[in-house]
Design a protein around this nucleic acid. Sequence first.
DNA 1: TTGATATATTTAGTCTGCTAAATATATTTA
DNA 2: TAAATATATTTAGCAGACTAAATATATCAA
Lengths: 141, 141
Amino acid sequence: MNNKVDCDIRQSLDKISSRMRRDYSESLRELDLYVGQDNLLSRLWAGDGITQMQLCEHLKCEPPTVTNMVKSLEQNGFIHRKRDEHDARVMRIYLTDKGKQLEKPVDFKWKQQQEKLLHSISAEERLFLRELMMRMEKNLF
Amino acid sequence: MNNKVDCDIRQSLDKISSRMRRDYSESLRELDLYVGQDNLLSRLWAGDGITQMQLCEHLKCEPPTVTNMVKSLEQNGFIHRKRDEHDARVMRIYLTDKGKQLEKPVDFKWKQQQEKLLHSISAEERLFLRELMMRMEKNLF
DNA sequence: TTGATATATTTAGTCTGCTAAATATATTTA
DNA sequence: TAAATATATTTAGCAGACTAAATATATCAA
């Protein structure tokens, strides 16, 4: 096994993902969003009124991370929090109108970023790439 | 073009890299390192006495990031800083013995992580994967 | 030589992440 | 019912990463 190749794959992965994150982050600033917040909103666009724990699970991150993101999004008026009526430990997160209106522009930016990453890669190659990625995911989780 | 596939590739990439980062981070804590610091040290193992600007370029990050990483590594005794003799603006970074000794254990952990990611993927597949990644890199930079 | 510009680094402040510990509320069990 | 345990969230504090602005030193040009 050529170890140099393995090494380059990992390093490449790191480089690609950090660069994408950076570019995407910059692009999202035009919408007054920070990278990561789009993913949280994305879950809410699919249905809001969910709890912070559910957001944790979806974002695959820890509770304090959600607390901070939610706080920041609320301060910017994209969402609001309401305590659950039946369980006072639980906070439920709802979109504001301002938050709802972000769906289309975020989707556009996402697709733009997507196309930048993959434009030189054919449909068949994308399929194969996706399959390999899913195998890598399985290896990690 | 199937948009769902495109979407999954990006999301997959995000998931894989953040999970790897998390796992690797945890693994590095056994060596009293934080994720990212290994990469900085790695550049020094290839030759120390370089400037912070050179580290920036290698790590593809901004100067304040290097300032903070270097400060933390210095506080933990892995490196030390010395002002350049001919240009007083420049700080040069050197490994301490403690820093030098980390090379092998970090390399071991890196390989471990590498193998976890790729173990179900054959040599030919790795080659192809690497080629695709390099094309994606080109798309981004 | 003085003034303008360029370069290297630091400081301050923000966000995404994390862990550990605190708080508040629910549930279970003795 | 009271105490122990479980669950949801917050707080505090740290790291990587960023931008904008400050600082210090070099260089270049009039």
